[in-house]
Structures are given as structure tokens and as C-alpha cells.
Amino acid sequence: MSEKTIICRCEDLSVEEIRDWIDKGYRSFDEIKRISRIGMGACQGRTCRRHLVMELARASGKDPSEIDLATFRPPTKPINFGAIAGVDQDA
């Protein structure tokens, strides 16, 4: 993985950008998520989550299993307002 590799495709963030935030002192998953928007996009962190955990583990010398993840929130998959309200949606 090069420094320029995109690790969050929804928010277009590279490894380098994430390492910059870690260097600036942001040390937890939630802190980096809030300041950089990593994992906040449409896929809600399906790909980037693992990569961010690895970066945080590397920077802190911890095992990846010791890194706290951001809270999982509903909906598990994107769902539209019409489906929830029970109205017809356009095709």
C-alpha cells in the first residue's frame, strides 16, 4: 500500500492523509472519523474500517484487536424514507 492509496473511497481519503491526522495527535477511531470523515460515507466504513484499525495499531504499537471501533448504527444497509414510511417509491 503506497502513501497515495485511497483507503476511504466514499470520502476520498488516502493513507497519507490518515497518517497526518494520527501524527497530529488524533489517536482513536472515533476522533479520526470525526475530523476526517473517514467511514462517514455511503458504505459506512465497510472497507476503510479495517485499514484504519491497522494504521492505528501500527502507530500505537497495539494489537489491532485492542483498537476500539466506532459505534455501529442503523440502518445496516441504506434504506429509503419511502420504504420506512410505507409509501410507493418511484422506480
Binding site: 462517514m40 460515507g41 455511503a42 459506512q44 459505534t71 448504527r73 442503523p74 440502518p75 441504506p78 434504506i79 429509503n80 424514507f81 419511502g82 420506512i84 414510511a85 409509501v87 410507493d88 417509491q89 418511484d90
Partner: peptide, 30 residues
């Protein structure tokens, strides 16, 4: 915690105000 009731009420409220919202996907509730 997040509630399903909130999501349902919100969906009804927003579709009345901006009907095109019925086709729009929610990605997160908090």
C-alpha cells in the same frame, strides 16, 4: 440509543414536506 419509531415518524414528516425524499436513502441514524 436509536429508535425505529423515530425513523418512521421522521420519514412521514419529511415526505410530506419534500415528496421527492421518499426515494432518498438514509445511511445512518444516531
Amino acid at each position: 440509543n436509536c429508535s425505529w419509531q423515530f425513523l418512521k415518524n421522521l420519514s412521514e414528516k419529511i415526505i410530506e414536506q419534500i415528496p421527492i425524499m421518499k426515494n432518498v436513502n438514509i445511511i445512518r441514524q444516531w
